[in-house]
């Protein structure tokens, strides 16, 4: 049964995402996990725009879009209504990082406070891509965007750290919070399955590199997402009833290996190498590794 479900393609080809789009892959994987018994709620952003230019839609399940900021409120209403009617559909929000970290926080907080049985997924491409690469609360430290440009006044790009959204939602008492990445498609599918089958409001944040906004070749989307994990700049973990579990361990590589492959970090290497800035980003990765205990410790060979 599960096998069968995985083979059905519920997110159709013909959508207008850029070739190699990370969020497009996440949308496909999401529907592999949910199957047909789902109602999807979207926010305004790349995924909404590339999957539903009227009169086309790539979604083969019920899907609704209202505003940029209110997906969690729309989902709350749908959930309350379905519950009253005794219906079984799962309700899943799939929203960008701008929608999630910035403009939608009010509605998300309300939905999680009220305890609606919904799964809220943020596809994190680390900026407002649909409107032309403006920084969001999810943009990592040091990334250049059109609203955190590099120049003589701000040689380092985005001056602020990435907001810790999973911790904010775990603090709401969410029974299940997880981070995932399209680098590990099956892990993401499993986490979505777990979230939709956990009663109460659950949150998943999935790392979805954007070749257009980050500045790398479309064929490298998976390689870039793997490097984010292997440098420790992205950590895959679960928070179950407030307790961090199963952080993915790695043999870390220096952050430069990730940074130098993307135009949004090019200013760190050209025209002159900015060692101090690179060291700050390395420190963020080191702090992540420490916090989540992801470093694989080399064992001494047995005698």
């Amino acid at each position: 049964m599960a096998e069968e479900k995985q083979d059905v393609e519920l997110f159709s080809a013909g959508h207008r995402a850029c070739g190699g789009c990370g969020p497009a892959l996440a949308a496909r994987l999401l529907l592999k996990a949910t199957g047909k018994n789902v109602i999807v709620v979207a926010s305004t952003g790349c995924m909404e725009v590339f999957s539903t230019p009227y009169p086309e839609t790539a979604w083969e399940v019920p899907w609704i879009h209202s505003l940029f900021e209110n997906a969690a409120a729309v989902a709350s209403g749908i959930e309350a209504s379905l519950k009253k009617q005794g219906r079984s559909e799962k309700i899943v929000c799939i929203c960008g990082d701008g929608a999630t970290f910035d403009i939608g926080v009010l509605c998300i907080s309300g939905a999680f406070e009220r305890g609606h049985d919904i799964t809220y997924i943020c596809y994190d491409n680390e900026a407002y891509m649909n409107t032309g690469i403006q920084r969001s609360g999810a943009t990592p430290y040091g990334a250049s965007t059109t609203t955190s440009p590099t120049g003589t006044c701000a040689p380092g790009g985005n001056p602020l750290p990435k907001k810790d959204m999973p911790a904010i939602l775990a603090a709401h008492g969410a029974p299940y919070v997880a981070t995932a990445s399209i680098a590990y498609p099956n892990d993401f599918v499993k986490k979505v399955e777990r979230a939709i089958n956990t009663p109460g409001p659950c949150y998943i944040q999935v790392h979805t590199p954007c070749c257009t906004g980050w500045g790398f070749e479309s064929r490298d989307t998976i390689a870039i997402s793997k490097l984010a994990i292997n440098t420790g700049l992205w950590v895959n973990y679960e928070i179950v009833n407030g307790v961090v579990e199963k952080a993915k361990k790695v043999r870390r590589v220096p952050v430069e290996e990730y940074l130098e492959k993307q135009k949004r970090f090019r200013h760190l290497f050209r025209p002159a190498r900015q060692d101090a800035e690179i060291a700050k980003i390395q420190a963020i990765a080191d702090a992540n590794a420490e916090k989540f205990g992801i470093d694989i410790k080399l064992r001494k060979p047995a005698e």
Partner: peptide
């Protein structure tokens, strides 16, 4: 829009 109508777009 009808489900999967995006398939019209080759």
């Amino acid at each position: 829009a009808p489900p999967g109508k995006a398939r019209d777009n080759k």
